[in-house]
Design a binder for these strands. Structure first.
Lengths: 238, 238
DNA sequence: AGAATAGTGTCTTTAAGACAATATGGC
DNA sequence: GCCATATTGTCTTAAAGACACTATTCT
């Protein structure tokens, strides 16, 4: 079955940077590296990931979905390819290439079962642009790249909507955007912006509390994120 | 030297979508697939690329630079990672992963030597969103993805500047932008836009012709592309 | 002078930002 | 009524678009 390829092949893996909001904080899912001898970075925290399995996986996205499902039991969250990292030194075992993805999990799915039950998986709170844990391989670089991509895309797309549950109010949506960009947004401008694209659809339901009830919405189309016409705040040069 | 990896490894290659302006037309560099038996897509046109060489290449970007240099003799053009394609079926030989890059060559370097001398390399003219040649593997998809990325980035970055030679006039820069976006741009708005970021620096030279001489400029910094505050034209929803 | 392209100025339009005003439920 | 949050409106600001006008060199 082994075909003469002409070149010795590098290792090939897929990693997934999984984001979710836990207690109104942006978090990333980490797994503990196995303790077996021969394994690099034994017992260290790492991103969710693993080798491409030529028998199980039809393509690299399948590998990402498989790994995601293994650790979170979530099937189809927002999943986007981030980029690839490959070098002679990133894995002590051999020349190694990893294709990185990032995923956004809705609140309830993120905290469903899995957690508490599994000591080898945890949500790390993101503070500023980092987490307290050290990460195996070049996973810190990959994580930071994913965070940067997410933060950048918040400025001009509807990405944060994927972090909410099915029904949400505009205030909740705004709060989610604010958590990601890390600053307060103007209510009025935010609403105009959201309404300028076909992102949300009001439903016949309201969220009640100790104040005026708020209109509940669902995402109009769950598929692709929408692009706004301008960024939230002018990009600073230099 | 072969280490127990636990998993049979996929093939791992790098492809580079190389763009340049030839005779004021956006073009992409193609190479002819080898004719030897055992080779897939014999004699078909393909993107520039090849397998990662664990001995020669320190990382995947090195592979891209090596392949670029082999075919164009250009050392350091604008080079950006585009994404990865990997599946069981994209290469008849085996499960295969390719990491795609795209590069922008300045005019004179693109047409330097190499061409005419080598029957196995040619510039394909891009018309609309495609080229006339059929391409090997999934290279058409990769090419289209690169073109889409380039076109998208023109709307809010200074990318086209990398397609020009060292010295250029604002009109030439505008024309380059227009070729990529595929529509005419307003001269006044374009100039305001360019001047709003520190993209170009005037030099003590002028381009003369049968009309008023034009101020020549050079790129202020050759490193990263700059981001404008808005896209050129509102993105259409739907 | 006339052609041709370079470069500038003025007005309009679009969408974001600031801030205020009004709306509506629970208590 | 009062509080708290929802929702809307009005004015300002920043940058793109339309269009016209001026500038400079060559023939």
């Amino acid at each position: 079955m082994k075909i003469k390829s002409g070149f010795p092949r590098p290792l090939c893996s897929v990693d997934v940077v999984i984001f979710a909001l836990i207690n109104s904080k942006l978090c990333v899912l980490l797994t503990k590296r196995p303790l077996s001898p021969n394994e690099p970075f034994r017992g260290k925290w790492a991103l969710v990931g693993g080798f491409v399995d030529k028998n199980l996986d039809q393509d690299i996205k399948s590998t990402a979905i498989r790994k995601l499902k293994e650790k979170t039991n979530v099937d189809t969250p927002y999943l986007e390819q981030l980029g690839s990292w490959g070098s002679a030194t990133r894995d002590p075992r051999d020349w190694s290439v990893t294709i990185a993805f990032y995923a956004l999990l809705p609140k309830t799915l993120a905290t469903k079962d899995k957690n508490g039950t599994n000591e080898n998986v945890k949500w790390a709170v993101i503070q500023g642009s980092s987490i307290h844990e050290e990460l195996a391989f070049d996973h810190m670089e990959i994580f930071k790249s994913a965070l940067k991509r997410l933060r950048s895309k918040v400025e001009y797309t509807s990405l944060p909507a994927y972090l909410l549950d099915e029904k949400f109010t505009l205030s909740e949506l705004q709060k989610t955007f604010e958590i990601i960009v890390g600053r307060k947004l103007e209510k009025s401008a935010f609403r105009t912006r959201i309404n300028s694209v076909n992102l949300v659809t009001p439903i016949e339901e309201y969220r009640t509390g100790s104040n005026r009830p708020a209109q509940l919405y669902v995402l109009s189309k769950k598929s692709e994120p929408l692009y706004f016409k301008r960024t939230l705040k002018p990009v600073t040069d230099e």
